[in-house]
Structure formats: C-alpha cells, structure tokens
C-alpha cells in the first residue's frame, strides 16, 4: 500500500445520502479480475450515458473537479455490498479521502486497506464543507498533523484511531504485520480454542 502523503486538492461534492457501492461501482464490472484500472467505472451509471458520453453536470465531469482527490458526500456513503472494487475505483480515479457524516462499515474497513482515508465529520460541517467545495475551495488533508484545512484555514481535526493513522502514513500491509508480529499468539490461541471446541477443527470431507 502506498504511504498516505499530505493532499492539497479541490473537493468534489455529492450531497446525496446513502450512496451505495452499486452506485460507486456497478455489479456488472465485478466480473473483472483486476484491482487496477477500475477508475474508469467509478460512478459509471451517473457519470456517463449508456453510450459512454460524459454526463455534463455530474461533478467529476466538471472543471475543476475532474481531478479532485477529495470527495464529500452525504451520510451512509459506501453502504451496501462489500465489494472492494468500490474502493479500487475511487483510488483508481485518484480519490485519496472521502468526507461524510457516516460510512458503510465494510467500505470504511476496505478503504483503510487501500490508502483511502474515510473521514467522518458532523452533518453540519460536511454540508458546510460541501458548500465551500462547490465554489472551488482548496482542501488540505494533513494526516501527519491530524488536521483538515480549507483554503489554508484549519477547520477540523482528523480524528482517527492511531493504528489506522500509522498504517495509512506508512503504507503498512496488515497481513505482513499479523504474520510477523502475531503469528505466535494466533497459534497459541488456536491451540486452546481447539481444546475448548474440538468440533470446530474436524477435517472437512465433502
């Protein structure tokens, strides 16, 4: 995972609530086997007409938001399906941070595995930031110093658990950490768990 560096960018505002992962990444593209190159399918059915023509008033099709690295949305962003492709499509498009009052839990968890910061702010603040985003404000996501700035002015602390912050800043791979640091604990737990609930450790013969 690529380390998270300070972002300075316009922010694209999608005020709708409950933008689900089917909207972010329609299911028909789940047949693709890759993690790369999925940015072109981001918000496919809202961003493009059936024939591939860009929908002119969709925010990501309008300057200066076409290459915004920050997305601001209503509550429940990423609810629905567990598809990690929703995250890969966002990062593939260049989005590094999504700000919303709440997130689908699996989506938020997937984001952190891919260097995408899901930032939870209050409904009021999100709406206020959305209004400023619309008129072209520049957002600074300074994860190192835990601060969100708009046009250079600090507007909110970036309040995420320290383990998640460190993982993002360092680009850590969680499996690496678990294998290196927790392997013995996992093995020890498994041994006592097996003694307590041996029926969970029968060999599967189909």
């Amino acid at each position: 995972m690529k380390p998270f560096t300070t972002i300075e960018s316009h922010a694209a505002y999608l005020p709708a609530t409950n933008i689900d992962t089917d909207i972010i990444f329609p299911a028909r593209y789940l047949l693709l086997l890759d993690r790369e190159g999925l940015g072109q399918y981001l918000f496919r059915d809202r961003r493009y007409e059936d024939d591939g023509t860009p929908v002119p008033d969709f925010v990501l099709n309008r300057a200066p938001f076409t290459d915004a690295k920050v997305l601001i949305a209503g509550s429940g962003f990423g609810c629905g399906s567990s598809r990690e492709q929703a995250v890969w499509a966002l990062t593939g498009h260049g989005i590094c941070c999504v700000i919303a009052p709440s997130f689908g839990e699996i989506f938020a968890s997937n984001s952190l595995k891919n260097g995408l910061l899901p930032l939870i702010l209050s409904e009021e603040l999100t709406a206020d930031l959305g209004a400023r985003a619309k008129i072209g404000a520049i957002f600074t996501i300074d994860l190192q110093n835990r601060v969100l700035k708009v046009d250079g002015e600090a507007v909110a602390p970036i309040d995420i658990p320290e383990d998640q912050r460190q993982a993002l800043l360092n680009g850590w791979d969680e499996t690496d950490i678990l294998v290196k640091e927790e392997g013995e604990r996992i093995a020890a737990f498994e041994q006592s768990h097996r003694a307590a609930q041996p029926w969970l450790f029968l060999e599967t013969r189909l």
Binding site: S82, R83, E84, V87, I106, S109, N110, K113, N114, D163, E174, T175, L178, V179, E182, G183, I186, E190
Partner: peptide, 18 residues
C-alpha cells in the same frame, strides 16, 4: 460478518482479523 477482498486474503493467511 462481511469483509472485503483484502480481508479475505488476511483471513486465509492468518485465520485472524483486526
């Protein structure tokens, strides 16, 4: 509980999840 593809990989390799 549902998990994403990265977490499926973690579970396969470690049988654990944070």
């Amino acid at each position: 509980f549902g998990i994403g593809a990265s977490e499926c990989g973690i579970v396969m390799a470690t049988q654990a999840i944070r």
